[in-house]
């Protein structure tokens, strides 16, 4: 059965890498909002759960000419031939035509991790362990987001819980369109540098739409033609060059400009 979509939005982001200072507020706000559990002792950068992973990337020059940018890497919400959707045997990944958001449905996931292998951005994370919080911290979970169990994959969904809340608020006010001030993902809200701009890419007047058309804006791995809805902005040439290199989940050696 086909779902009829009346108005299509394409939620997306533009991240100004020249403004980002790697403070980590976005990554922490994301984990708190989405009930991502803290690391267990054995976890490391390969087995951890970082829906938003801040990757420091260098221009490969030595001291004192070295430069670093911090790339907040998370699900790029691919529009075209979404690689994870295509490989999932369980229909546990859904591309929402109404919003352009790629959602993960952990209850359907059987943990085969095909999607992790398929994702060119390494933005998907597998729950190797059961999530653990102290008893008190369990009372501090976000009531709008379900925690995930061991053996399933999870990833950024543009704070879907906040989208639902905004839709409910709009519906209560008799509107079918949300007020974008009500739908601000946690990372955008937390960024002290205002480096992340979020909005509807389909709205030509929105700031995000205008920024996405700027000549200094680029996407990662455009040669794959996945048409990600997360754009990056930088005035540095070496950062643009780096964007076409293959990405590794850990180690920044292949991300030099």
């Amino acid at each position: 059965m086909e779902t009829t979509v009346e108005k299509k939005s394409r939620y997306g982001m533009v991240i100004n890498l020249d403004r980002c200072n790697g403070c980590g507020a976005c990554a922490v706000a994301c984990a708190v909002e989405n009930n991502v559990p803290p690391a267990l002792t054995a976890m490391n950068s390969r087995t951890g759960l970082t829906w938003l992973n801040l990757i420091p990337v260098s221009n490969n020059e030595n001291y004192p000419d070295n430069e670093t940018v911090y790339i907040p890497m998370f699900c790029q919400q691919c529009e075209n031939d979404t690689p994870c959707v295509k490989v999932c045997p369980q229909n546990a990944i859904e591309f929402d035509e109404a919003t352009g958001i790629v959602s993960q449905i952990p209850q359907r996931c059987l943990g085969c991790r095909y999607c992790m292998a398929a994702c060119p951005y390494h933005a998907r994370y597998f729950n190797w362990w059961d999530p653990e919080w102290t008893d008190g911290m369990k009372q501090q979970l976000n009531p709008a987001v379900s925690p995930r169990m061991r053996g399933v994959v999870e990833k950024c969904n543009f704070c879907h819980g906040r989208l639902h809340a905004a839709r409910e608020k709009a519906a209560a006010n008799g509107s079918s369109e949300i007020d974008m001030n009500d739908y601000v993902p946690a990372c955008v809200e937390a960024c002290p540098e205002k480096a992340i701009v979020f909005g509807d890419l389909n709205d030509p007047d929105s700031e995000v739409s205008k920024l996405s058309r700027d000549t200094n804006t680029f996407q990662f791995l455009t040669r794959l033609d996945t048409k990600p809805k997360v754009y990056f902005y930088s005035q540095k040439n070496w950062v643009h060059t780096m964007a076409e290199r293959a990405m590794t989940r850990t180690g920044k050696e292949e991300l030099y400009g």
């Binding site: 790697g22 980590g24 990554a27 922490v28 991502v36 803290p38 490391n44 990757i55 030595n62 850990t250």
Partner: peptide, 26 residues
Amino acid sequence: MSPIISKLYQEAELRPLSNTVLLNPR
């Protein structure tokens, strides 16, 4: 700090964990 700050240290390569020495490649 909250154990969730592991997202910046332990589960990412953003900041070094204790007893990590950073030195110039040369």
